[in-house]
Computed example of a mutant assay.
Amino acid sequence: MPVPPSLLPLSTVVSRLRAAGCVFAEDEARLILSTARTPAELTSMLDRRVHGLPLEHVLGWAEFRGRRIIVDPGVFVPRRRTEFLVDQAVALARPGAVVVDLCCGSGALGAALAAELDGVELYASDIDPAAVRCARSNVAAAGGRVYEGDLYDPLPAELAGRVDVLLANVPYVPTREIALLPPEARLHEARVALDGGEDGLDVLRRVTAGAARWLAPGGRLLFETSERQADRAVATVAGDGLLPRTVTSDELYATVVIGTNARALP
C-alpha cells in the first residue's frame, strides 16, 4: 500500500526535491509518495532521487504511451519523444505482424506496439545483460521473447525474411558528446545504450547493413535519430538497399527514419 501522506507531508518531500534541483518537484513528490510502500522505502527513494538517480530508476518504472514499463537501475529510460517512433510503427503494422525490437533496452517499444496491435509476434534483443533482464519482464507480458547478444546475432535464424516491423532505437550520441549529456543519463544509464561512435551512426550502419536480410517483402525498419544526423542516416539506409523517408514531430522534437525493403516489393 502507498505510504499514508501523514507520515511525511507532501510539502516536505517537495522541499527536499526542489533543494536538490528537481525542476518538477511537486510531480515527482506525488509519484514517490504514491509508489513507496513503507516509511523506510520512502526515505530510501527520496534519498536516491536527491543524490541524482533518475526518477524512473527510483520508482522502478517509467510511463511510456500511458503504460508503466519496468526500468531497473542502469537500464536506458525510454524517452517520451520515442513514443513518436511507436506511433509510426502502429500506423504501418498490421495485426499479427512479426516485430523485432533491436537495442531493446527495457523493451518499451516492442511491448507498447504489441499492446496496441492484435496478435503481434514479438522478438527483442540487447547486448546489455541488465537490459535483457529488465526487458524480459516487460516483453513477456506482451507474449514476446528477449535474446541477449549483439544486434541480429542472437535472433532465431527462421526469422530471416519474415520481419514486418524492425524497431531499432540505436544509440546515436557521438562519443565526444557523451560528456555533455545530463548527469542522469551520463552517470546512470549504460554507455552502450548512448554511445553511437564518432559520428553517432556506427550502430545504425550495422543495423541497416543487415536489415534487408531480415525484413519481409515490404517490411520496414524504423529508428530515431537527431535532426542534424537525419540526412546522413537517410543516405545510409538508401545505400543498403532500403527505400527511406523521414517523419518528424515538432511537438516531441523527434525525427524518425523509415526504411522499406523495396528490393522485395513487386
Rank of each mutant, 00 (worst) to 15 (best):
G119Y: 11
W61N: 01
T43D: 14
G60E: 08
D72I: 00
F24S: 10
G60P: 04
W214L: 04
S137H: 14
E148M: 03
D27I: 15
A114E: 03
R67V: 09
S44I: 14
V203F: 12
G197Y: 03
R65K: 13
P217T: 08
L17C: 04
S15A: 15
G110T: 15
G197Q: 00
G119T: 11
A135R: 01
Y172V: 14
N138V: 12
A193Q: 01
L92I: 13
G21K: 08
R228W: 14
V120Y: 03
V14D: 03
L242D: 00
S137C: 09
A36M: 05
D195E: 02
C22S: 09
V207Q: 01
G74P: 08
G60Y: 05
I32T: 09
G66K: 05
R68K: 12
Y172L: 00
F76D: 00
L46F: 09
V165H: 04
V71Y: 11
F223W: 06
V173E: 04
L7N: 13
A211K: 01
R18Y: 10
G210E: 15
G218C: 03
D202F: 06
Q88W: 05
E83M: 06
V86P: 00
S44Y: 07
E116P: 02
T246E: 15
L102P: 01
P78D: 07
G74N: 10
G259F: 08
E227W: 15
R145V: 09
C22D: 10
Y147R: 01
R18P: 00
L17P: 05
R220P: 01
Y172F: 13
V23R: 15
D164C: 02
V98P: 01
H57E: 10
T12V: 11
D195S: 06
M1W: 11
L122W: 07
G119F: 10
D128R: 04
L7Q: 12
T43V: 15
G259E: 05
V170H: 05
D250M: 07
T225C: 14
A111L: 03
E56R: 09
T43S: 15
P266R: 04
S125L: 01
D150C: 06
D202C: 10
V132Q: 02
V192M: 08
T12E: 14
P73I: 11
I127W: 08
V90Y: 11
W61D: 03
A108F: 05
L194P: 05
A230L: 07
T236E: 13
W61A: 04
L92N: 07
L46M: 10
A115R: 13
A111R: 02
V3R: 00
W214Q: 06
D47T: 12
D199S: 07
A19K: 13
R145N: 10
R37N: 09
V58K: 04
D27T: 15
